[in-house]
Amino acid sequence: MKKEILARLVVLVLVSGMGLSALVFRIGDNSGIVEVHAAMPEKGGWLTDSIEAQVGEPLVLSLVSDDVVHSFALGQSDFEPVDVLPGVPTEITLTFDEPGPYTFYCTRWCGADHWRMRGTITVTGDEPFSKDLPDPPLYLQLGIDIDDPHENHDLVLDEQPSALRGSVLGLTTPSEFLTQAYYRSHSPHQVWDELRKVPSTSELSESQIWDVVAWVWAQNTNSTKLAEGEALYQRDCAACHGVDGDGEGIFGAEEISGDGTPHEAGFDGHTIEAPTSFQDAGQMLTASPALLQGKIIRGGMGTGMPSWGLIYTEEQTWNLVDYLWTFQFQKSQE
């Protein structure tokens, strides 16, 4: 009889011990690690897409993909994007110095809706979020309506303006044309009109004035800025706008749904328009850098163009705008 009680006890300890040990080890393992799953946006995107953290306290994320290769990047920061691979958890540690909302996003193309794959990390601290808003972007300060059609399809140039040819003309361009503020707030076409009125250009042909415009544009950028702009363009823009800026990227309007029929409505019911061609002089030469910056920051509002305002720093946006002009003006040999 005693033996039977002993045997019952052993079985009881074994059974309850198995359950208890599973609980104990699970609690011991998962201290403070937030598990984030990445999936194609049609299948849910980031799970979870809203994370909370404290100022100064390390936030440990364990990232794993449920389908294809994704990547985790943090908007407006120096954080180097990490790949999120299927079946391979990647652990990263983030520490925030300032309270506020931070946007994280995917940088590896994971389908036609790749750019929708974003999430927010809300960082709270002792101080509340800063109430002073940053300066509004230039297009708002200038009051530019970025949806206003600005195309001038009569504007067709015989050849691409060249900054190099413009520089050898030996023209003493009035200094007001060379300030950054002037460059950012005027379209090439406006600058051309203004230059035409300057007495020193009266001898020049129309295409030579375009060369001077290209030279003015070249004065406002440099190879480092262009290189960063190009890297961003290849990573985030080329899939729709095309590697050559011709608007015929692999996700162009016809190909966007994959089965041959144009993508009439996304899953939120909006339409997708054909991407702009940056090789189109009528489009590009009538747009000012401020207008292009506005389009990048805000996005296309129902055209399929994402908004990048929460992703790029102001510097990155300007570098990208600088790069877009290389589809219009001949690249100067350095």
Binding site: V69, W109, R235, C237, C240, I250
Partner: peptide, 8 residues
């Protein structure tokens, strides 16, 4: 090699 869309 591996390629993203838009990056041949």
């Amino acid at each position: 090699i591996s390629a993203d869309p838009g990056q041949t």
